[in-house]
Design a protein around this nucleic acid. Structure first.
Lengths: 132, 132
DNA sequence: CTATTGTACAACCAAATGGTTGTAGATGGA
DNA sequence: TCCATCTACAACCATTTGGTTGTACAATAG
């Protein structure tokens, strides 16, 4: 029961978005994403560039993988990490969900203004914000 | 340039993005954001709609505030919470940082294809995407 | 076969999260 | 004044995170 009807159908969607943003909420993980968009890098090669252990980087990659942001592919004994560009689009969509609500608000305000402030014309520049 | 990552001169930018995405990585907080874009709501009114204590919701609002996603404004004894629409744009910018790297990769691949697959013409309409 | 490299995974630990309750200070209304 | 409401904040607790180390196992080089 997620309160608002946002994701009433399948409760799993929230957790997906949770994992997505959580994975993005770490500097090291964002850096891994950037580097693995340009090149496929093995976990050990990634680990060599961060001031932490191999196991720690391995965990970061796991977090990214569970969020659907990267995929792993074996090549010999290496495991190549690659960023999934579509995942960035998924994150963007989640933001769009927020922005659409904002747009609805602007639309509602525009409706009020059209009624109250119609004489100002379409490029009505007058301050109408609530923060006076 | 940016790049909030390892090579950043002023390390403060990372933490800002960290806080931004961390604040977004929670279903309750995203719901608060959606509702406070449409209307300014007091903390107690918000708290009344979630299956948790007032103090818990208060903490969520604090997290959102520290991330710059909402602002609080006193009205009498109430504290009205409002989402800052620009903040969504900031999150989007952070995603753009990732996508620009992806674009660079595609550009580089296009260069290779132009050399290897030049007979396809400048149109280069053949599928060369990473999902192939 | 042996040694090295790359991964996987478990156990452990300090710190942060997300929740609770309780207490205290402002604000507004009777 | 007295009381109800709204907020702020501290203390506490269970769970998760982010890191460590150590061990085990597959793949490659010698």
């Amino acid at each position: 029961m997620v309160v608002d009807g946002v994701a009433a159908g399948s409760g799993g969607a929230d957790e997906t978005v949770d994992r997505l943003f959580h994975a993005l909420a770490d500097t090291t993980r964002r850096d891994i994403l950037r580097r693995c968009v340009r090149d496929e890098l093995s976990v050990s090669r990634l680990a060599a560039t961060y001031p932490m252990s191999f196991a720690a980087v391995q965990k970061h990659v796991t977090v990214l993988e569970r969020a659907g942001l990267v995929t792993k592919q074996r090549r010999g004994r290496e495991q190549l990490v690659r960023t999934d560009p579509d995942a960035v689009g998924r994150a963007r969509q989640a933001l769009d969900g927020l922005e659409s609500a904002w747009r609805a608000r602007v639309d509602r305000m525009s409706g009020l203004l059209a009624d109250d402030d119609a004489e100002a014309g379409p490029d009505g520049n007058t301050r109408k914000g609530p923060d006076g």
